[in-house]
Design a protein around this nucleic acid. Structure first.
Length: 1004
RNA sequence: GGGCGCUUAGCUCAGUUGGCUAGAGCGCUACCCUUACAAGGUAGAUGUCACAGGUUCAAGUCCUGUAGCGCCCACCA
């Protein structure tokens, strides 16, 4: 976008207000205004200043990549709220920061290093690799913070945090220590979601399900010896599986106890596992669905009645294994290849040539090889296509492998020992005083609420069905788990973590400890307390080693609301701003993040972290697809800022924010001012146009205020349009304020927008132009222009901060005090960012003025309409004759100048009995008739047709209204005021019809 | 498999407790560079509110069902 209209701000001379360009150029304004706010210290939150606290913690963006449009929306809305509350006089804090995003960041850095240097993580020393990730983090953190600033976010930058900085690390250490001491963290061998690509465990909610077109393979497992059932000889059983490769680890075949064949099979005969040769039992378990090809049940349709049981590689099988005491044989390495080195306990007994050929194959290669083996041995009974949901890593996107491994867990449904036993939350198995219970209770009590409310359920059901949270990750980038493991120096009483709140004395410290027997040896796990390097050193000396793993990223982000404020220290910020007010986020992390913050806030701080969770829409592209790098449909907020301006972006995003759950953003490649091509969206045109309009109207108002005189304002000197615009303003202030209170950003902007554009620009500015030309008549409208513009800038500031601030600064130079009078003050402020939000003054509300002015508007529109229809030049002077009731005419006459001016009339005649001049065009609006005498030919047929249409329409409505009123039930059952309104409406319609008919008759 | 959401003008979407002669922006048509703004102004056209039932005096709005689209959750026989 280029313009020859010069820079937005010419040099000021002699202290005169600067000239403003006619095209708003955001690039000229945004930087200086942001500097002005920063220099003014307006974003800094000071608890000592007291007042009403209002705080928001930012959902810390991941340092994996620069911010995208979703972030732009998220942060725009937060800034809307913070700026609004600041103007409402609250002591506001918007806490900024970024998230280290463990697995995600490590993955992108690994990928980049592999691509650029051909090296893998394991080619580096741990510290060296972390240094590389740190560099990435530094780069992206800077970019992200820069983006937030460019968007205009009014965060308290002095408090900027990072989930791995010293303050947050301190909180993590404290939190881990407390959880461990309370026996809420334990080490366990469990089946976890394993990502073979990144080789780490994933929490349930880090697994994404995708539909995969797979197959069912029907494999025959020979029986140890044939069995006779009802005279039929059975030599093998057939199992159906989607993952044949796991059969190497089968340790049983299960069947339903009600299966008629069970009596002859269960416990009577074993199965010889093909390839491996392992003899495995047949067990009875209710979990197995019996075969029934006729059944509606999907499972019964494909079931053979026999289920292969692989405890080490399937969660259901794990459960069956637990019930029947089956061994778990792990046949895979962490990278997903077939291996006998990771828990294949009977390898030495079963190894043979066939099995050995499979060792080292990737799990999918092994699948093929095994299927081929079965086919070759004639044991492959059938293959059927089968579409099913397969869990994939949300980071590497490869299928997740259920994998047996040792991990640290948080016990989420365990009664917290330090709290009283308060039973279960009704209808659940969740103890009130468990971590899950602590997160659930405030929701049920209404202390935490979701907006929109429907998201409550997502949160609730998730917590109710929560399983223990695996918190260790086999990564390098993250908070290292502060657990040290060593040979137990003394004999423990027991080795069951659950019942032994025990400790180990190290130096002068008693460390919480858990004992475990591993490979016949007793080990002790202890947690080193925060800020005790001496203890850590002592542990090292004792030959203890720190756990190599790091914590799940959500462990530290769950602490975000308290860690950023300095917990566990009793900081002023924590005391003043906690609990915060609103958490603003998208629905995708309600479970991942929101619930954990509530859990931790409640447990560590004894209070909820925020009282409202505002969930906003997710942005999709024009086709309803997710925006992503791989699709090439992502948009960088900085590119929108370059193409349209930050305010335009914010305006459009805020305006789009309704209660809907998805919004679409058509993506289009655009050329930016610097010549680059980048993705942006024409959706932002609306915002840009709005800003330009605001800029120009502000410019125009200020031109007219140049020689404004202050002094007493005499309200009695106001004319109809003055009373009208003030009334409309107050109505708007009222609507906007209510909308903001209810997180209705669209409604708020809609209200301000229509007031600004339709009422203020289209009408008030136009109406007052003639009055502005005269030194005497301009006095009143000048004061009102100043007051209304001042109010508008305040109303719009939370949404479009830059342009409103720029105009505010200019306006301040033109008119220092825009107060109307003592009752309608406009408290001066040195910056719009800290100006007071307007109050809706009831004494300026004026329904009569609004009704009267509406009448004037109707008359003007009628004349313009005739002009347009008759193809008469806009400024050709005309005479108009208006016939209407006495009251209506009185209103019109009181604003005759306005009508003449805005309709470009030479003469306006009003009469209750006027006749239509023979050569004239006419317009009937309600009961008002407007005639415009014209020279030349009037097409009477056309006029009659128009009237005929209007009559038909009117009759239709009258018919409907009459039917309604003739309906006995309506009259008796509808609310009286509704019936009364309907009667009035019918009366009005009939009057209007009569006028139309009279005029039609006149044309005959 | 469970849950949630959407379907309103050519396009993108508003429409809070049922009272609607259903709105906005963009686009479209005609006229206008009227010294704030052409990123603008004036005037105008356009809708079986997905479909089928039901509740009600009254349904875009509430209920049930159907279809299409999208999302979230769920241990892959």
């Amino acid at each position: 976008m280029t313009t020859d209209s010069g820079s937005a701000q010419a040099d000021s001379n002699n202290g005169q207000p600067t000239e403003l360009a006619s095209l708003y150029d955001p690039a000229q304004v945004e930087g200086p205004m942001y500097d002005l706010w920063q220099e003014g210290g307006h974003f800094h939150a000071d608890p000592a200043a007291g007042g009403d606290p209002y705080a928001i913690v930012i959902p810390p963006p991941n340092v994996t990549a620069a911010l995208h449009l979703g972030h732009a929306l998220n942060n725009t809305l937060q800034d809307n709220m913070i700026r609004w509350r600041r103007m409402m006089g609250c002591n506001t804090l918007w806490m900024p920061g970024t998230d280290h995003a463990g697995i995600a960041t490590q993955t992108v850095v690994e990928k980049r290093i592999l691509a650029e240097e051909g090296k893998r993580r394991t080619d580096f020393q741990r510290d060296e690799f972390i240094g590389r990730v740190q560099n990435w983090k530094d780069e992206y953190e800077a970019r992200i913070l820069g983006q937030l600033k460019a968007m205009g976010c009014s965060c308290d930058w002095e408090r900027t945090r990072f989930t791995m900085d010293a303050t947050c690390a301190r909180a993590v250490r404290e939190a881990f220590f407390k959880l461990f001491s309370d026996g809420l963290i334990y080490r366990g061998k469990r089946l976890v979601n394993w990502d073979p690509a990144t080789q780490t465990v994933l929490a349930d909610d880090e697994v994404e399900h995708q539909t995969v077109e797979g197959s069912f393979w029907y494999l025959q497992y020979p029986l140890e010896h044939p069995v006779e059932i009802n005279g039929q000889r059975l030599e093998h059983v057939t199992v159906a599986t989607t993952r044949p490769e796991t059969m190497l680890g089968d340790t049983a075949v299960a069947m339903n106890p009600n299966d008629p064949r069970a009596a002859a099979l269960v416990g009577k005969v074993r199965v010889r596992l093909p390839i491996v040769g392992r003899l495995i039992p047949i067990v009875a378990d209710d979990h197995v669905v019996m075969a029934d090809p006729e059944s509606e049940d999907e499972k019964a349709k494909f079931s053979t009645g026999f289920l292969k049981v692989t405890p080490a590689h399937d969660p259901n099988d794990w459960a069956i294994g637990q019930r029947h005491n089956l061994p778990a044989i792990n046949v895979m390495a962490p990278d997903g290849s077939i291996s006998y080195e990771h828990g294949w306990t009977d390898w030495d007994e079963v190894r043979n040539a066939d099995v050995e050929q499979l060792i080292g194959l990737d799990r999918f290669e092994a699948r093929e090889a095994i299927v081929n083996w079965f086919r070759g041995e004639n044991l492959l009974e059938d293959v059927r296509p089968h579409a099913h949901e397969v869990g994939h890593s949300y980071r590497s996107h490869v299928p997740v492998e259920p994998y047996l491994s040792d991990q640290w867990f948080i016990a989420v449904k365990k009664q917290i020992p330090s709290l009283p036993d308060a039973g279960l939350i009704a209808g659940t198995d969740v103890p009130v005083n468990s971590l899950a219970g602590l997160a659930l209770k405030p929701l049920l009590e209404g202390r935490v609420r979701f907006v929109p409310e429907r998201y409550t359920r997502t949160y609730q059901t998730w917590l109710e069905n929560l399983r223990d949270w695996p918190i260790s990750r086999q990564l390098w980038w993250g908070h290292r788990i502060p657990v040290w493991r060593g040979k137990a120096p003394e004999s423990p009483q027991q080795t069951d973590w659950q019942d032994v709140p025990s400790s180990l004395r190290v130096g002068d410290a008693d460390l919480p400890a858990q004992w475990r027997t591993e490979q016949g040896e007793v080990y002790v796990y202890v947690v080193a307390p925060p800020n005790r390097p001496d203890v850590e050193q002592k542990l090292d000396e004792m030959g203890f080693a720190q756990d190599a793993d790091v914590l799940d990223t959500w462990f530290s982000s769950g602490l975000w609301p308290i860690s950023t404020m300095g917990w566990p220290e009793e900081t002023d910020a924590l005391n003043f701003y906690y609990p915060t007010n609103v958490l603003c986020t998208a629905r995708e992390i309600i479970t991942l993040w929101v619930s954990r913050m509530v859990m931790f806030g409640q447990y560590f701080r004894g209070d909820i972290p925020f009282s409202t969770v505002f969930i906003h829409a997710m942005i999709q592209d024009g086709e309803g697809r997710k925006m992503s790098k791989s699709l090439g449909n992502g948009i960088d907020p900085l590119d929108i800022i370059a193409s349209h301006g930050a305010d335009a972006m914010r305006f459009t995003l805020s305006y789009m924010t309704t209660e809907t759950q998805d919004v679409r953003m058509p993506v289009a490649e655009m050329t930016l001012p610097d010549g680059r091509k980048a993705n942006s969206s024409p959706k932002f045109d609306n915002g840009r146009n709005f800003c330009n309009k605001l800029w120009n109207s502000g410019r125009f108002v200020m031109m007219n205020l140049a020689e404004m005189t202050a002094g007493e304002f005499d309200r009695s000197q106001m004319q109809l349009e003055d009373r009208w615009i003030l009334s409309r303003l107050m109505r708007t202030v009222d609507e906007a304020t209510q909308a903001m209170e209810n997180y209705r950003f669209h409604d708020c902007l809609e209200s301000i927008y229509s007031f600004f554009w339709s009422d203020f620009c289209d009408w008030y500015l136009e109406v007052t132009k003639p009055r502005m030309r005269d030194e005497q008549t301009r006095l009143v409208p000048q004061r009102i222009l100043a007051y209304v513009l001042d109010s508008l800038l305040r109303l719009l500031h939370p949404f479009v901060p830059y342009i409103t601030e720029a105009l505010w600064q200019h306006l301040g130079q033109v008119v220092a005090d825009r107060s109307l009078d003592a009752e309608a003050p406009a408290p001066p402020a040195r910056a719009c960012v800290v100006a007071a939000w307007p109050k809706a003054l009831q004494d300026l509300r004026n329904d009569d003025a609004e009704a009267d002015f509406a009448q004037v508007q109707r008359a003007i529109r009628a004349i313009r309409n005739i002009r347009s229809r008759m193809n008469i030049a806009p400024r050709q002077p005309l005479t108009a004759i208006v016939r209407a009731g006495e009251d209506e005419l009185a209103r019109l006459n009181s604003a005759a100048d306005t009508v003449r001016h805005l309709a470009s009339l030479e003469r306006l005649e009003t009469s209750a009995t006027a006749e239509r001049p023979r050569a004239s065009a006419m317009e009937v609006v309600e009961t008002m008739q407007v005639y415009v005498p014209l020279e030349g030919v009037i097409d009477l047929d056309q006029e009659r047709e128009r009237l005929g249409k209007q009559i038909a329409e009117k009759e239709k409505f009258i018919g409907g209204s009459q039917n309604k009123l003739a309906n006995e039930s309506f009259v008796s059952r509808a609310k009286p005021e509704v019936v009364e309104a309907e009667r009035e409406r019918l009366g009005r319609l009939q009057e209007e019809l009569a006028v139309l008919q009279a005029n039609l008759k006149d044309l005959q």
